[in-house]
Amino acid sequence: MSHGHGHGHAAGEGAAPESIAAGYELADTRARPLVIGTISVFVLLVVTAILMGVLLLLAGNAPTDLSNTLNPTEVARQLPPEPRLEQNPNVDGDRLLREATEQLESYGWVNERENLAHIPIERAMELLVERGIAPFGTGPAQGSGQ
């Protein structure tokens, strides 16, 4: 790396004659290449980081599914083959829960002719505390067909 670093002194290998005369190396360090080198390393780091950020953005989303960290062949081996039983699982589950919740939170008729109604569960719990458990078990069904 030092070859041909003439610095106003005699070119070539070895120390300059002035240095030999003085008994030690007279030339100063050449700081510039070092500074440039160091700075360029850091610039490269920053540029790389920015580039990676851009690439990640371009690639769409960051890897959010934590679970798919097994390699694809491993995943393929562990999951059952297509077609799976479920085609659209979330929709059904959500719908069932919503319907049941609506049923449990509203007033309405079960059988209007027999005067049977459904009421919100909160109200039913209050009513049950008033009435107690026992009448259900012992007597005829409350309100069923009078």
Binding site: M1, S2, H5, H7, H9, E13, G14, A15, A16, S19, I20, Y24, E25, A27, D28, T29, R30, P33, L34
Partner: peptide, 9 residues
């Protein structure tokens, strides 16, 4: 000991 000029670097 005489070091080559690049020794400082």
């Amino acid at each position: 000991q005489i070091f080559p000029r690049n020794a400082n670097a």
